[in-house]
């Protein structure tokens, strides 16, 4: 055990940090793009705040198409774009681009489903006070749904964590890359098992943190 850690410890720590870096930055960026998309999807529905059924139909369709692209295809497909933005298509920072683009439409759907849960009566009450649509979205819908948004964010983060292991296949680093290089290409199954263990740990920790934060943020059941 000690020997194993001495040999591979630094490799595993580096892999974990790279995975965390890719996951957290991609999640953050995906939410920056996906949240406004989710808001648009929600408020343009028929009968909603800024009803625009035709736009909603087309936009919803586009989001679905983007979501159905297999991640590995998207990643290769946008290499020229990644290279234009980051300067290279290899490495952790480069992987953030396809991760973000792939997760944004997923995040949009997560945000949409959280906003759908907001009580229509509350929205109407605020409307009757003379609030603008912008105020209703930013001060009511996005605030009343915070606990649900946080729970959605834990699902998104863990999904993106799963994707980061795929980016390992094209040399992006991280735990997925380790598992592939040592476990698959060099038959060093102990390293592979260690990475799997670390991934399980990461998922459990992320899940618990979000669970605690969401429960703390929810003022409905106290």
């Amino acid at each position: 055990m000690t020997e194993f850690l001495a040999q591979n410890g630094s490799l595993l720590v580096q892999g974990t940090l790279e995975t965390l870096y890719m996951t957290l930055v991609s999640t953050l960026l995906a939410y920056l793009i996906g949240t406004p998309m989710g808001v648009l999807l929600t408020i343009t529905k028929p009968g909603a705040l800024a009803a625009c059924p035709r736009f909603n139909g087309i936009f919803s369709w586009i989001v679905s198409i983007l979501r159905s692209l297999p991640f590995i295809i998207l990643m290769i497909f946008i290499i020229p774009f990644t290279r234009a933005v980051v300067g290279t298509s290899i490495g952790c920072t480069a992987a953030i681009i396809p991760l973000t683009l792939s997760a944004a439409p997923f995040v949009a759907r997560m945000v949409e489903s959280s906003l759908e849960e907001v009580d229509k009566g509350v929205v109407e009450a605020v409307k009757s006070m003379g609030a603008t649509n912008w105020q209703i979205v930013t001060r009511v819908m996005l605030v009343e749904s915070i606990p649900s948004l946080l729970r959605g964010m834990s699902i998104s983060t863990i999904t993106i964590l799963g994707y980061t292991t795929i980016t390992g296949a094209v040399g992006a680093g991280g735990l997925g890359n380790l598992a592939l290089r040592f476990g698959y290409q060099r038959y060093q199954s102990d390293v592979m098992y260690a990475t799997i263990l670390l991934l399980i740990l990461l998922v459990c920790i992320i899940q618990s943190i979000f669970e605690v934060v969401a429960r703390h943020a929810d003022k409905r059941n106290r």
Partner: peptide, 22 residues
């Protein structure tokens, strides 16, 4: 103009419709 007029009327609902997170 509608938003301005709405401020002249207060509305109370059967289901209260309070902001639950505030």
């Amino acid at each position: 103009a509608q938003r301005q007029a709405r401020k002249k009327m207060g509305v109370v609902f059967q289901g209260y419709n309070l902001l639950m997170q505030k």
